[in-house]
Every structure is written in C-alpha cells, then in structure tokens.
Simulated assay, not measured.
Amino acid sequence: MFERIDQMLAGFSEGDAITSEAQNLRQIFKRWGIASDIFVDTRHVSAGLLPECRPLEEHRGNKASLLIHHYSIGSPAVEAFLRSSSRKVLHYHNVTPAHFFAGFDDRIARELEDARGALANVIPRVDAMWAVSRFNAAELESLGAREVAVFPLQFSGSEMSDPPSDVILGKFSVPMTNILFVGRIVPNKRVEDLMQAYCWYHRTINRQSRLILVGSDRSAPAYFVMLRMLAGEWCIPNVCFERYVNFRDLPTYYRIADVFATASRHEGFCRPLIEAMSFDVPVVANRAGGIPEALGSAGIMYEDASPAELAVLLDRVVTDRGLRSEVIESQRRRMAEIAGRNAEAELRSLVERLA
C-alpha cells in the first residue's frame, strides 16, 4: 500500500458533489492509516473550507505515494497533477460540453473546450483511470483510454441529516404543491425547459403550486439573468429562485417537496437525484448522460417531452396515489442497493492494483 494518498481538485466548496467525494475518500484513506491531504487552487475554495485543504504548490510527490485528480474542468490543478512524481489516477467526473455555455459565458466555454481537448494529453500520462459512471467511462474510452474503472459517487445519507430549518419552513408555510429542482444553475441543466413545463402546470392544472429552484448561479450569471427575465416575460408566478443554499439547509427543501424534477441535457451522474430519493421525493428526470445510472430502475425518466406533456407527467406523479406509491417503492429499492454497496472494498481493490 502507498505511504500517502493525496487528491487534487480545481475547487473546493460546500455542497459540491466533487468536494464531498474528495472528503469521503480522504476519510477512508485516513481510516486505513494512510496520510492524506487535499490540494486545491485556493482561489476557488469556500472560506469555511480553507482549513481543510492545502495549496497546490505545497504538494510533494514521490513514487511511494498516489495522487488522485478529480477532473471536471481545466485548471492549474491539471498541470500540478501532471508534474507530480507520484503514481497518478485520473478520476473523471465529466466535462460539460462547451456549446452549452457559448453565448452565456464564452470564457467558461473556452475553458471547457480546452479541458476536453487536454484529456487526450492527460490519458497517456496516468497510471489508472476511474469514472463516476459508465457514461463518463465511455467518453474516456472514445479518446483511447483502456481499462477505465467505474467508481460511482458515494452516498451514506448521514450528510443529509440536519434538522429542518424553521426559516425555510416558514417561508413556504402556505400549502402548495412544491416542484423542486436542485443543482447548479447552468445552461446544460435546461432550467428554462422546466420553467416552461411549470408554466403549463400552474396555468392549466394546479394554480396552488410553486417551482423551487435551488442552486448557485455563480457559474453562469448571464444564464441566471435570462431565467429571471423569462419568468417575468412569461408572467410565471411562484418561481422561487433560492440560489445557493447552505448544505445544512438543503434537507429542508427535500422535506417540503412533492416532486423533484430535472430537465438536464447533460449529467455525469447527478447526485441530487440520490438525495431526493433518500427523502422519498418522487423523481422525474430527462433521460440524459449518467442519469439512468444514478436512478437505475427507480423514478420516472422521460425523453423528448413537450412542456405540456411534462406538466401532465408531474401532475400524475403528484396526484395519482398508485403511481406515486410505485415510484417511491422503486426508489426505496434503489436506495437499498446504494446502502448495500461496499464502496470502501471497491476502493481498496482499485488502490491495491496500483500498489
């Protein structure tokens, strides 16, 4: 086994799926008695997490250590990773296709394009490749990668156990049907498609309803502004733009939700689906990217639904007791599968192959 196993990330922030995964892995490594640190570009670290990570330039590698890079965008972490003399693992979380950001943030679009282009150079220089889904693994294989191991994001549920927030419960105390979306407010999530479906739902099916959008707008401010403008232009009431939510408050939104919906067109895995299922919130999701792997046979997935069709589907999940019960039962089976997974044994096997 290695004398130390470190990780490198482009950023480090509360509520971020990659950050959470890196923290989980570090905890496992330390439980094995192996020294482990997380190295990050400190320009992109939440203030509250600064004590938990170290600057990239402090990393010192050697052949007796392993370095895991969580790859999702181009950053100084990539070059620091490649320079290291440690054994290297590329842990691929997916790079969002640049065309989604074109016109909203051309700088981010270029960074995404560069990150995808750089993969062909990174792949031959690593000792192993892991991906959080088979969908992601297939992307690496299309670039010539061989023997990509699939190691899905871990989920225990313990991180979602904070008590309800009285402030949030009070804010949404008026009884209404709550349609919830959780995720970064970025173009590939196609939040506008969900808003159009909600518009149909609210105007023609259920006026006592809300669309609650939870997620940071920092990655694509121009896209967020467009969504706010569309809500006004379409005269859609009760669209609640909650923006970034403290991770301790997030469980409250799941507790008040009647249905979780996402119209996302591109996902490497989509952790919020797992979070919603853990609270028995029925999930309705566009069949895209790694979403089918996250859901398994649970929830409801759709393809090519019009706004009106998606609105009717949401209504059925909310009002049809038989269907709702079937969906929740399928999700409980999926959560039992996730709970029964021995991720630590999987991880040990992957690491031991490199030792």
Rank of each mutant, 00 (worst) to 15 (best):
N246C: 11
I123Y: 09
Q154Y: 09
R321S: 13
D16G: 08
F135C: 07
I185E: 10
L354V: 08
P152R: 05
L250C: 06
Q7C: 08
G170R: 12
E139F: 00
G117E: 15
N342E: 12
D106G: 03
N286A: 14
K88R: 11
S349R: 15
R60E: 11
Q27M: 05
L194P: 04
S72K: 12
G33R: 01
P163S: 07
M301H: 01
D127E: 00
E14D: 13
E141D: 05
C235P: 00
C270Q: 06
L49T: 09
E79T: 13
L119C: 04
P237C: 09
N24M: 13
R265N: 12
F224S: 15
R107G: 08
Q196M: 14
S156I: 11
I34W: 09
N188W: 03
F155E: 05
R146S: 05
L310K: 07
E58I: 02
L180C: 07
E159L: 08
A145V: 05
I338K: 01
G74E: 15
E242A: 15
D127T: 05
V167K: 12
G299K: 02
S173I: 03
C53V: 14
P97K: 04
L313Y: 05
R248A: 15
D315K: 13
V245I: 14
A285C: 06
D193Q: 14
F12E: 02
G117C: 08
T42K: 10
F81T: 06
W234G: 10
V284L: 15
R265L: 12
L66G: 05
A222S: 14
